[in-house]
Simulated assay, not measured.
Amino acid sequence: MRVLDMVVAAMRTGEDRPTDDFVAFYSANVDRVYRALAVTLRRDDLAQEAADEAMARAYAKWATVRTLDNPAGWVFRVGLNWATSFWRKVHRERPPADESQHPRSGPPDTDVVARRALARLPTPQRAVVTCRVLLDMTTAETAVALGLNEGTVKSRLSRGLAAMRSALGEHERA
């Protein structure tokens, strides 16, 4: 169930109504968090579920989440943790499915090489690059969101961007 559907259902049953600041936060950040999760997880369907779950958890804990320095970073991390746990559970229960069965939104042709280069990065590097570049987080915000030291964020970002530059350079030479 989408977060906004949950909010509407809660309002119909007389449960706590969402505050205007949560509605504004949701509207401003849900697409950014979804895109960041889609890039990091490389699965649009899983990213959508993770974003919905994370936003639902943010709504449930809004009194605390809204006081954080970067609530969107918290939502991203919760979504990434949820997806990782979900993926592990699914793989224990059945073998991995062919990824070509899962729909993906296609990027413009000019972005294909960059997206492939990003997709080839190990998940920890991809998560840092996503936070720093797509979510426009600072090094400190990324460290908090991913539970890392700032030095680790800097080194993963440096290595990830270097690998992407190399891949893009190879493509240009070809």
Results as ranks from 00 to 15, higher is better:
127 A>L: 02
158 S>D: 09
136 D>G: 11
40 T>M: 08
128 V>H: 11
2 R>A: 15
20 D>A: 15
163 A>I: 01
21 D>R: 11
7 V>L: 15
159 R>C: 06
131 C>L: 03
69 D>V: 03
77 R>G: 01
118 L>V: 09
111 D>N: 06
173 R>P: 01
11 M>Y: 01
160 G>R: 03
128 V>M: 10
50 A>H: 07
76 F>E: 02
125 Q>F: 03
146 L>G: 02
105 S>A: 14
101 Q>T: 12
44 D>V: 07
126 R>I: 03
101 Q>H: 13
161 L>G: 02
51 A>E: 12
16 D>H: 09
80 L>C: 04
127 A>T: 04
40 T>F: 03
7 V>D: 06
109 D>S: 15
78 V>A: 14
163 A>M: 03
149 N>P: 03
73 G>W: 00
86 F>N: 10
64 T>L: 08
164 M>K: 02
5 D>K: 05
46 L>E: 11
65 V>T: 09
98 D>K: 05
98 D>P: 08
44 D>Y: 08
100 S>L: 07
165 R>A: 09
162 A>K: 08
111 D>T: 08
146 L>V: 00
57 R>T: 05
113 V>S: 10
84 T>M: 06
31 D>I: 06
98 D>S: 10
139 T>V: 11
87 W>R: 13
110 T>P: 02
92 R>G: 11
78 V>W: 03
98 D>W: 04
138 T>H: 07
125 Q>T: 03
51 A>D: 06
164 M>G: 04
156 R>T: 01
94 R>P: 07
104 R>L: 11
93 E>Q: 13
5 D>R: 05
139 T>S: 07
95 P>E: 14
89 K>M: 04
136 D>F: 00
97 A>C: 09
163 A>Q: 06
131 C>P: 03
66 R>T: 02
23 V>R: 11
51 A>T: 04
26 Y>V: 06
110 T>A: 14
116 R>G: 08
91 H>C: 11
65 V>H: 05
39 V>Y: 07
155 S>G: 01
157 L>V: 01
50 A>V: 04
142 T>C: 11
40 T>K: 06
52 D>E: 15
48 Q>M: 12
67 T>L: 10
141 E>K: 00
27 S>K: 11
126 R>Q: 04
38 A>E: 06
27 S>G: 14
65 V>N: 04
171 H>V: 01
61 K>H: 15
164 M>L: 04
150 E>P: 04
164 M>H: 02
128 V>F: 08
52 D>K: 08
35 R>C: 13
100 S>R: 14
12 R>H: 07
129 V>N: 12
116 R>N: 15
4 L>W: 12
140 A>P: 04
35 R>V: 09
8 V>G: 01
67 T>D: 12
51 A>F: 08
41 L>H: 10
57 R>H: 10
90 V>C: 10
100 S>H: 09
114 A>D: 10
6 M>K: 14
35 R>H: 15
145 A>Q: 01
35 R>M: 13
71 P>L: 02
64 T>H: 05
25 F>V: 02
149 N>L: 09
